[in-house]
Nucleic acid binder design. Structure first.
Lengths: 164, 164
DNA sequence: TCAATATTGTTCCAAATGGAACAATAAATT
DNA sequence: AATTTATTGTTCCATTTGGAACAATATTGA
């Protein structure tokens, strides 16, 4: 709970980073803040430059790292509702960024794969995210960065099990 | 790039966590995954139980930790567009969760404060987020958790400066 | 075997969202 | 002082979003 002032409006009186320490769920807050800092500007740039909405580049990213996935898999990996993935699939099949092939065994599902064109696009998009990632983590030295990586990995694996 | 199969549809063949390691921007990815894991289920619960949308509880959280802020401050802290904050302000003033007082010096802006009622609501919401935070970080031991906290804090502060 | 239940992916619809243009005010520049 | 530029907060509008109901298929269990 910090003093702010409107008495002297010329100077920025309030330290807008205090909440990092004072909020009850400070780790969750910091994580979310960092995620937003990475994702929001990059998302806007991807939309502007490539015309993809979030569910679409998520789909592209997932398919870039697995030989094939079902829409259900993608929804689970990304924690997005199935209908947004479904929409993304249709638009991206139309754009020939991915391919869909009905499963002969289980006729409900279809397996999705990325095309060459899709892979090329993913590479360009990944460069945006990688760049922003480096900017965000530039405040850490090499050991710190490694340690953070390790801890995030462990936490993410634990959480994935939790989300199951 | 991992083998999956649709040949034997009964067993889950694909390890959906592999992407944590194989993706180009793995730190950014892990951070985002964790943020989503914390925020999505909690957000849904907050909406269900209290009827608040995201911009609204963000506003509440910000005002819980500063004596007063302008809408602009909140937009900056939360990295949300100004119009979503504006909407949230109006609804929450109507609900008497926050108060708005026009600034005499700079007539464009208004200073926002949280009410007692707003504070009580924030406490209840914070409990949801805190609980989820604990679940997500339960995979770490005490030292690891402390170390992660420290690294996240440093990175968040660096990023806040970057976002300025 | 047949009914009941679960799962996958889709469509529909109402709500949330964010960019852009705007009015009001303030600050900077001439 | 007058003009130009910047800032704050708002409204408008088109798009994105996600819950819920649904059809098709698969699985479970009586």
């Amino acid at each position: 709970m910090q003093k702010t002032t409107t008495a002297n409006p010329t100077a920025r009186q309030t330290d807008l980073t205090e909440i990092f320490d004072t909020i009850e769920y400070s780790d969750a807050y910091r994580i979310t803040y960092l995620a937003n800092s990475i994702v929001f500007p990059t998302y806007a740039a991807i939309k502007r430059d490539f015309g993809l909405v979030r569910a679409e580049y998520i789909l592209l990213a997932c398919l870039s790292h697995y030989d094939e996935l079902t829409a259900r898999d993608v929804a689970q990996i990304s924690m997005r509702p199935r209908n947004t993935i479904s929409r993304a699939v249709h638009r991206m099949v139309a754009e020939q960024l991915i391919e869909r092939r009905h499963n002969r065994v289980d006729k409900r599902e279809a397996s999705l794969t990325i095309t060459k064109k899709g892979q090329r696009l993913h590479k360009r998009i990944a460069a945006y995210l990688t760049q922003r990632q480096e900017d965000v983590f530039a405040g850490l030295n090499v050991q710190e960065r490694q340690e953070l990586s390790k801890l995030l990995r462990k936490t993410a694996l634990h959480t994935a099990a939790l989300n199951q």
